[in-house]
């Protein structure tokens, strides 16, 4: 069964992956990180990504409707840059937590649709085994 590091290393095997982290969006803490970070600093990246994730997770414009199964309505947040993508995938846990996986993906080699599906599977495997 994968732990946090194995999960992040899995994410790094995706084509074009530059860096990956598991981040708590309430505190802004990176609970694990591998590879590169934009600007070279995983901590700063985690704090900034956490702010974005929190806005998406909390603001009504993005969270309206669809909460019957107890899963949060927002699954992921995608940012596209000129040369890269940032994919934030919320991790749904059976215990109380507020974490997401952050994958930084080169745009030339990366496949956003594939990465989105795989990252969702990795998020589930991380906490469900």
């Amino acid at each position: 069964m994968p732990g946090i590091d194995e999960c992040l290393l899995d994410a790094m095997r995706l084509p074009g992956a530059r860096g990956a982290a598991l981040v708590d969006w309430t505190s802004g803490l990176a609970l694990g990180s591998v590879g590169e970070a934009p600007g070279g600093d995983h901590e700063t990246t985690a704090a900034e990504a956490a702010e974005l994730a929190r806005l998406a997770a909390e603001h009504g414009a993005f969270t309206a409707g669809h909460a019957e199964d107890g899963r949060p309505p927002v699954e992921d947040v995608i940012i596209s840059n000129r040369d890269s993508y940032h994919l934030l995938r919320f991790v749904v846990t059976s215990f109380d937590s507020s974490v997401f996986l952050h994958l930084w993906l080169g745009r030339e080699e990366g496949n956003l649709a594939l990465a989105r599906i795989r990252l969702g599977e990795m998020a589930d495997r991380l906490v469900l085994g």
Partner: peptide, 18 residues
């Protein structure tokens, strides 16, 4: 014992530690 997935336990452990 494998009662919990490693990722879930690691995550909860780190949450509780911090």
């Amino acid at each position: 014992a494998g009662l919990l997935p490693s990722g879930a336990l690691e995550l909860c452990h780190l949450d509780a530690l911090y």
